[in-house]
Design a protein around this nucleic acid. Structure first.
Lengths: 223, 223
DNA sequence: TGCATAGTAGTTGTGCACAACAAGGCCGCG
DNA sequence: CGCGGCCTTGTTGTGCACAACTACTATGCA
């Protein structure tokens, strides 16, 4: 079997979401339905289906007669999203935490190793990709699928802004802090303590937000 | 100005969602895109746009060549959703709680009055509508729009199952319990304590889940 | 009678043409 | 020179026809 239409849309959605979150399509960018359709070799219809979902997720906004733009969350919305993300991060350790086994520890060690490599050669895009993959791993520590879905939704909503601000901050320092988080989490998982890992995550989200907010709204796309 | 296309879709979405949550379209029902389109006097296109959103929200599922069916969440998914809803209910009181003023107290008194009327003449559909409106009021007690959005999403995902189970339980007793919750919450809001109101809400969700689960999966639609 | 198979009806997914709409440029008029 | 209206261009929204796919039924054959 080649590929189900359902899977094709999911793949399209994932790719377009990544282009937004990695700032290939920065906030404010006007997307062309026809252009994207031509690029993927399909008609506007399935692209519109994906854009509709991205709009429901808050990543883009379509205006009749004007265009479809990548949204740029305001400071208030960002603060509210992060506030909720902090709570959800803690819930990952409290609601149906999985039993930490050898598989989790091995995967965690892999992330720590990648984190060390990144800290030696800081680079924004690699950082963003690793952060994304590590976030997914963190979610795998809860058995609550609904929580995973909601937390993922909110993560992708903040990812592009995080990446933009990271580039404005001291990239090397951010990578170093990230590596520290990875090491702390590895310690928690080695002890089999998923709740501790969740608390480490929450603490680092909290501190990350502080640094981001301190950097201010510099670099916000003009409307 | 007549109506924006955006608003029309939002209205369609709201109406169709209500038909699902009030069990006009019970779980398992096969929806006809063409039928709905004819009913609303539009083509399949905007209906498909709305159905796509409902599918992303988990209320319906479309299968190529088969049809679009109202989903019937399994016990596991329900449990996970309610577990998260409990936590979010508490967060309403913790994240950016609004200052409780005369307006909130007046609205709350209105709900309590409607609750008393309902308790005198229990009726499932009225109960569901009142519960829905009261839930929206509860969300208005937090200034965190993201939290409101997520909590609302999860509420509508459980509403239809709740209504089905309520009908199977002792309806009069459920209405009485609901009235008790309204009175407790009114007391909390009179004291200006939004956090207390949130905790009352959480407690009642928790107890409601217990009763629902105890009633078991009787009445589940067969696949 | 049992069963495989082709056919048929009904559904969602896709492509395409056109309508609805907004922004900017251009021309004519005061 | 200023400016108001028109027009042109580009975009998203809608309708419609057809393709892709599934379930069911009838039919012919052993």
């Amino acid at each position: 079997m080649a590929e189900d239409a359902r899977d094709r849309l999911a793949r399209l959605h994932g790719e377009m979401r990544e282009r937004i979150c990695l700032m290939d399509w920065a906030p404010g960018t006007r997307l062309s339905e026809e252009g994207i359709a031509a690029e993927y070799g399909v008609s506007r219809t399935p692209i519109r289906r994906v854009l509709a979902r991205l709009e429901d997720e808050g990543l883009v906004q379509s205006l009749h007669g004007i265009g479809t733009m990548v949204t740029d969350p305001g400071a208030e919305e960002l603060a509210q999203t992060y506030a909720l993300r902090e709570e959800l991060a803690e819930l990952v350790g409290r609601l149906s935490p999985v039993e930490v086994g050898a598989a989790q520890r091995a995967e965690m060690a892999g992330f720590r190793a990648q984190g060390e490599a990144l800290a030696q050669a800081p680079e924004a895009r690699s950082f963003a990709r690793l952060n994304m993959a590590y976030f997914a791993f963190g979610l795998s520590l809860t058995g609550n699928a609904v929580l995973r879905e909601v937390a993922e939704r909110l993560y992708y909503r903040t990812a592009r802004v995080w990446l933009r601000q990271i580039a404005a901050l001291d990239l090397a320092e951010e990578c170093a802090v990230f590596l520290a988080e990875l090491r702390e989490t590895e310690r928690a998982l080695s002890a089999g303590d998923a709740m501790a890992a969740a608390l480490v995550r929450r603490a680092h989200i909290s501190m990350s937000v502080r640094r981001l907010m301190a950097a201010g709204a510099a670099g916000r796309a003009v409307d």
